[in-house]
């Protein structure tokens, strides 16, 4: 086989759906919209876990929100039949992520766990990934943010504090995944057990709307949950193959 053929076959294999099933992990999250109450606990839990800066009122007024997970709200109908639906929106860790192709310096890439990783040190701040992301879950550091003392003592030492000019987004709490993997390795296990690792948002969700786990493990909670008949992807038509699966809201009539 010539070099080109080898390259081509590797490329094709890489592009083939299901490629990630060959790996130990393909981290996936399901969000049951029927249980989500929109309370925002996930937002604050994420902010606490991931050193997400406080941007201040002025910046928020300019539209520079900084929450890796946010609650979107959509109204239906008018009073008295108005209904409000919530949907938590976070990085979907797409298997065919538009943001990964556009970054000129490969600061964002797909790792072997099926995570869409962001290398802060490598980011030059073209912000094109945020343009390419149809879910708009990438957030840019317009400034160096400050934590007035002693708020800085709360900063999680396992997570980088990002500097100005760098893009950031949900990592599925990769630091927790790393710790769980280390723990598994110390125990002589090959894989992390189901339920051993949970991102901060899933951990705190009081209505248990979120499930997180490894979809390559057919025994896992998340595998069962994502195979629920109610499962769907948001913006399926963009064909990004997200790793976040939503479960449809149930509408009871009458």
């Amino acid at each position: 086989m010539s070099f080109i053929d080898t390259l081509r076959s590797r490329w094709q294999e890489y592009r083939r759906p299901g490629y990630y099933e060959n790996f130990d992990y393909a981290w996936t999250m399901t969000i049951d919209l029927d249980s989500c109450t929109g309370c925002g606990a996930c937002v604050t839990a994420c902010q606490a876990e991931n050193n997400i800066p406080l941007v201040g009122e002025e910046e928020l007024a300019r539209g520079r929100e900084m929450h890796w997970i946010r609650i979107e709200r959509y109204w239906e109908g008018e009073f008295p039949n108005a209904k409000l639906n919530f949907i938590p929106m976070l990085c979907q860790h797409c298997d065919a992520a538009p943001c990964e192709t556009v970054c000129p310096v490969s600061a964002t890439y797909h790792n072997q766990d099926g995570l869409n990783a962001q290398v802060y040190n490598r980011c030059v701040g073209t912000r094109s990934c945020a343009v390419y992301c149809p879910y708009e879950v990438r957030y840019f550091n317009y400034y160096n943010h400050e934590w007035p003392s002693p708020l800085d003592q709360q900063l999680n030492p396992d997570v980088t504090v990002r500097e100005k000019g760098v893009m950031e987004k949900c990592t599925f709490c990769i630091q927790r995944i790393r710790q769980a993997k280390d723990a598994a390795k110390d125990d002589g296990r090959r894989r992390v057990l189901d339920g051993e690792v949970q991102p901060a948002c899933v951990q705190t969700c009081a209505s248990q709307a979120m499930v997180f786990g490894n979809r390559n493990d057919s025994q896992s909670e998340v595998f069962k949950s994502m195979n629920d008949p109610r499962a769907y992807h948001v913006l399926e038509e963009v064909n990004t193959a997200p790793s976040v699966v939503y479960l449809k809201k149930v509408e009871v009539n009458g």
Partner: peptide, 29 residues
Amino acid sequence: AKKIEGNPSHPVSQGRLCAHGQAGLQVLY
């Protein structure tokens, strides 16, 4: 203190927590 989470063995919170509970760290700091 870095992070507050619900205590899974506590029958009230059952391991979960609301946004205010998470923000308790900012009372401390």
